[in-house]
Design a protein around this nucleic acid. Structure first.
Lengths: 244, 244
DNA sequence: GTATAAACTTTGTCATGCCTAAGTTTTGTT
DNA sequence: AACAAAACTTAGGCATGACAAAGTTTATAC
């Protein structure tokens, strides 16, 4: 059985190496709230145990074994979040902190019971995919809201921050998973993006918009102003995550 | 914040001093699966922190402060058990182990959410009372099944063991919280007790019977053989614990 | 290209909580 | 009462995982 500390380090490295290629000592330390010296020590331990590779002065990278552990933790985390949301009705800004504590304590048996109870879900309350037991994740074909063109319509499918402030801000704007949006205006110089959300019109900054993932509707036949220079991901429409 | 270890010691001392007046080093060690030397060390620590009094060679006793912590832990434990039973449908033999792990990790906020979600329950799935936030517990007026007289009828309100084997045994006998029973026969010399449970007739040993608490029905007018030498507790009838 | 800053590692220390081995107190037996 | 066994404590040690301080490597600036 791995200690809670080791699990946290592996999760942190996984998250960091998903962005960049490698997880630096500094960033791991910041993420976990420990000093760099502690991180170096733990990275060496992880390397000795075969969970990571340590390239001195160059950061850490997980091995396949380490990745498997990381995906297992993410699975636990997201199932716990969904379970707490479904049963106790916790709002999305409250979920992360509690799941973070519980993910080290919940038995495998309980995780699988939750999985079945929740109807073998694919996505958590933030729209993030839940890894399957074997570590595979349903890919999401979505675009960053800040990359949408004027006139585009779509549905919010995920958000990438877990900061409660940010999530409450979105709630105040009426933005949640499944919200339908229409891009009304895009100010130049990374200025705010104006959206239609339900019956409200709101303005949102670029930084926030970049954290919101949207599945964009295929354009309808009606005349619309194209904006070809904006590149986007695939636009497959997907059902939103089921809430109760 | 108290460590999981400290919480476990306080719980163990509480349980032991509820039986006897004091919790001996040996018994604490057995309960927690550690050596006596470790217990002595921790008792001294608890005494230094004001959670317990240590009388060397005489065992430990919790202070008021320690008791408050213990009741808080019991509250958490029992609410978690009830929550897992209510949502995931865990059977009573599965509950204890998971709750034991979770009770150290669940936030106070989550505990109170569970409490409300469950409808401010008074009893856990084993029929044990759930301490209120201030530490008071609804007393249960019940008798040990092995002390019932021939012909007595009643309802199972609680069991006092948490051993999964024992609980599965009771399940096999059709005995659960709320089961109505009738004492058909009592063999002499601490022999088995024969019961009517629903439509089945079963025999149960004294040791098991002593762990089952029953609320005995007031005798009906019809003729019945009295057995005055058996003393019992009060016989107030109480609603059984609500299951979903 | 050299100096300085930033990132990183090494070394030694500390708290927690466990252990073993050895010594002490209490209890039980005769 | 005296001895042996059981219960208990003390002393010393170890693993984990954190830290600070000091030293090393890499990046940045000029």
């Amino acid at each position: 059985m791995l200690s809670a500390s080791i699990e946290d380090y592996i999760k942190a490295i996984y998250a960091l190496q998903t962005d960049r290629e490698t997880a630096s000592t500094k960033r791991i330390a910041e993420r976990l709230g420990v000093k760099m010296a502690s991180v170096t020590g733990m990275i060496k331990h992880l390397a000795a145990e075969g969970y990571a590779k340590h390239k001195p002065y160059r950061g850490a990278v997980l091995t396949e074994r380490g990745k498997r552990v990381a995906l297992g933790m993410i699975r636990r985390h997201r199932l716990i979040e969904l379970f707490l949301a479904s049963t106790l009705g916790l709002s999305w800004d409250e979920l992360h902190a509690d799941a973070e504590l519980l993910e080290h304590a919940v038995s495998d048996r309980l995780i699988e019971r939750m999985f079945e109870y929740l109807g073998r879900p694919q996505f958590d309350p933030h729209g993030s995919p839940i890894p399957s037991r074997d570590g595979s994740m349903t890919p999401r074909h979505s675009s960053r809201l800040d990359e949408l063109a004027l006139g585009d319509t779509g549905k919010v499918v995920a958000v990438s921050g877990r900061d409660p402030e940010f999530l409450r801000y979105l709630t105040d704007l009426n933005l949640r998973i499944g919200s339908k949006i229409l891009v009304r205006d895009r100010a130049p110089f990374n200025g705010p993006i104006t959206l239609r959300v339900g019956s409200r019109t709101i303005a949102i900054g670029h930084e926030a918009a970049a954290r919101i993932r949207v599945s964009v509707d295929a354009p309808t036949k009606g005349a619309r102003k194209p904006k070809p220079e904006v590149k986007r991901g695939s636009r497959t429409s997907r059902r939103a995550h089921k809430r109760r």
